[in-house]
């Protein structure tokens, strides 16, 4: 029996996907200027991450391993993720136009979000989790992503009122704020689960 709580806390705090593992940095810096956009993007990523974790785990375990073609994992995983995102977009467009308007622009971006491919590779090849553990890891990593994104968006909304030297305006200041956030998250690295 794997330590599911350990996996969850680990993925949210100790090995935060953005601030410790450096995955998903493009949306982290791109979408973190407004709190509302950050929350929506975070939820969309969590949803896709959870579903992709389950789908790729099944494909890996029941298709790639029996056929001994594990080396095809990169091509197969990215196709599974891309088609899942495409299907989700079509489904949302047909079922809820309101949701599609607020989420629409983020969904295509998620396909090339390295956090998703990273988590699916970690679940199967690197850690070799069971299906349940992979699902928990997918959800928890998504929650960790929301946490980092929302914290960053909050910081950046406040920073808009500040008056930094011209050279630091924009991205440099965002990087330095991220450095301070990452420093705070280093505090969790001593936790033993």
């Amino acid at each position: 029996m794997e330590n599911l709580l350990g996996i969850a806390i680990g993925a949210i705090l100790i090995n935060n996907i953005v601030l410790t593992k450096f995955l998903g940095l493009c949306p982290f810096f791109g979408v973190s200027t407004r709190l509302k956009n950050a929350t929506t993007m975070g939820l969309a990523v969590t949803f896709v991450m959870t579903a992709s974790s389950i789908l790729t785990w099944l494909v890996y375990e029941y298709l790639l391993v029996p056929l001994h073609i594990q080396y095809m994992r990169i091509v197969v995983f990215i196709l599974v993720i891309a088609s899942f995102v495409q299907l989700t977009e079509m489904f949302i467009k047909a079922s809820s136009p309101t949701l599609h308007r607020s989420l629409g622009i983020y969904l295509p971006l998620i396909t090339t979000n390295c956090a998703i491919l990273g988590v699916t590779l970690m679940n199967t090849v690197v850690e070799g989790y069971s299906l349940i553990a992979a699902t928990v890891n997918g959800v928890a990593t998504g929650v960790g992503f929301i946490l980092a994104l929302v914290l960053m968006a909050g910081l950046r909304e406040r920073l808009e009122l500040a008056d930094p030297p011209q050279a630091f305006q924009g991205l440099p200041l965002a990087f330095i704020s991220a450095a301070l956030l990452a420093l705070a998250f280093q505090g969790f690295s001593g936790m033993i689960l």
Partner: peptide, 22 residues
Amino acid sequence: VVMLLPPGAFLTIGILLALLKR
């Protein structure tokens, strides 16, 4: 050692970007 840890990476690129902009 902090420069090898994640915060160091963000700090390095942040300051580097600011210097290049300056």
